[in-house]
Design a protein around this nucleic acid. Sequence first.
DNA 1: ATTTTGTTTAACAAAAATGTTAAACACTAT
DNA 2: ATAGTGTTTAACATTTTTGTTAAACAAAAT
Lengths: 204, 204
Amino acid sequence: MYIKNKDEATEDLIKKTAKKLFFGEGKFNATTQEIADAAGVNRTLINYYFRSRDKLFEIVFADAQEKEQQRTESIVFSELPFKAKIEEFIDDSFVMAKEYPYMEIYLVTQFNQGCYFKDEEGMERMLKKFYEEVLVEMEKGTIDKMAPIQFIINMVSLISFPISMRPLFQRTMRLTDEEYEKIVDDRKDIIMNTLFRNQNKINQ
Amino acid sequence: MYIKNKDEATEDLIKKTAKKLFFGEGKFNATTQEIADAAGVNRTLINYYFRSRDKLFEIVFADAQEKEQQRTESIVFSELPFKAKIEEFIDDSFVMAKEYPYMEIYLVTQFNQGCYFKDEEGMERMLKKFYEEVLVEMEKGTIDKMAPIQFIINMVSLISFPISMRPLFQRTMRLTDEEYEKIVDDRKDIIMNTLFRNQNKINQ
DNA sequence: ATTTTGTTTAACAAAAATGTTAAACACTAT
DNA sequence: ATAGTGTTTAACATTTTTGTTAAACAAAAT
């Protein structure tokens, strides 16, 4: 039998390259030729391994969704206390964002074009669990009382927006790469302080 | 001479339709045929009025940028007190978002593909002015002390993210249109409370 | 060695999208 | 009425992108 390494190598290389272009560089409309060039392979290999451009896109999209969800799940269902979970989530998001800054925005554009969702069950379980924890914290007074969904929206907004909108922000505010990275680095404490009413303020 | 109405009517109709498709429905890859169909005109009229697809895109993009900036400028340079400006900005953003929910995300994807910026001077003046006001508020203790840019990022994130990410959010959280609109309606107070350390809490 | 199996390539075909032209059309001013 | 002007249309041409096929190729098994 043929060595399994080689074919999986190219197949994987193509997938990796597509991800890099989509999520890493924001080139959502990359043609098969562009992907092939970036990967240094013949264009028709995309058809050989993935049948069609659409199939490749589907796979990459599904992968991205799954990864996002697993990432979140492993934090939500961990044994960490609430506040630590949020910190973990922030750290994790920023790490992810370094490699794939355009991931979330890509997911959104895909959803706009009428994409289905993957593991709906898992998502629901996770949300329920997190909801409950949020409610407990509100009872304790650690966070302001509001609809739990609003707390989640606040949290995700504060974390994800500056990542997704980096090109717009950085240009608008005329910031260098270094300046922007500094800002992102500083954000963890700021987000924590904003979400947790500044009790036990971390940075002062 | 020919009636000026008619030609401006179609030209404008095409622009309006393109905007509706891009910003209103998130169809960033609409073909000239799709735009023409949606506008109910012959496809080649796009070439007649705009020369090429790219030119049309450029114009729509420039328009969007300009509108956003003017909108923001008129608030920043108004005579309102700081807090009222923010409220105004929130209201304004939500109105805009009703018609063009995908506007900001479109701007970002365009920037990703290497787009230039329009009125850089104006933007700079505006930012400077707002920075100063933010600093004053921090001195007064109305808002937490942090780099002014971080306050701005917080503000814009809390406002724009739930709009831009609506399809993702709504799907993920399994919400109906009515439920989501309710959430957006509730957000104004939540955002104000989050930004202003909950003094004089609006909603309790 | 040669058959088998899977991979890669280039040439070709097909499809999709854009752009151009010239003729038809509508309206108005003369 | 018709000459003039700008608009709209359909037919055509071009370009871009995708998909297919058959042959070349490489490695391993017989």
